[in-house]
Write a protein that binds this DNA or RNA. Sequence first.
DNA 1: GTTCTATTTTGCCAAATAGCCAAATAGATG
DNA 2: CATCTATTTGGCTATTTGGCAAAATAGAAC
Lengths: 98, 98
Amino acid sequence: MKQDLKKRYAAQAAVIKAMAHPTRLLILHSLKKKETCVCELRDLVGDDISTVSKHLLVLRRAGLVAARREGNWLHYRLTCPCVLDFAACVGGLKGKCV
Amino acid sequence: MKQDLKKRYAAQAAVIKAMAHPTRLLILHSLKKKETCVCELRDLVGDDISTVSKHLLVLRRAGLVAARREGNWLHYRLTCPCVLDFAACVGGLKGKCV
DNA sequence: GTTCTATTTTGCCAAATAGCCAAATAGATG
DNA sequence: CATCTATTTGGCTATTTGGCAAAATAGAAC
């Protein structure tokens, strides 16, 4: 495998991996509608808030979300809504393809 | 989180997770060009053939590839080329988005 | 300063993953 | 039948992940 190719696929895989969790997909879809603070996301997801925070860290590191502070709250937002078009494509994969 | 929603995101995440590895992305992109046997993929990837075989199992289970036997060889093919459009979008994520 | 609230970080554990090697399998061919 | 070839499976180890709970942090408000 050529080195530059290897690097490019590693970079792509890192982003895809960040999306590869049900909770994180839920968060991404929720953020598509509007900026949301962590506690609101915790209510939506239902996990411990520290767990939600870790998922947000994963998404932040991948460059998929960013945060904006407003008083005590951190408002998270999607940086690149286009990534969710993909999830829809993937949605009903089985059965549809050859 | 509503149950049906949870299930849908779990199903999507399973497919995305299958794509979330540099070697598997390489394999998928290679298969986009043409059907390929395992030994050819091993040469391309450079890992042990058993490792490549396991990656193919992951992709098969996700419904992303399928195999066709011809003599001694198994020819793998992409079942749903559309999934790769996404990888391109994800490629240069950092820097491009807000 | 202290206190309160939202969020992150740390520590821990169980489960999943990726890789190699060796052994097993499936089909072709002698 | 035995043998060869392509591929898969099983076993092992090292590493990563996801979850909770407790402790730490950052900023607002008193």
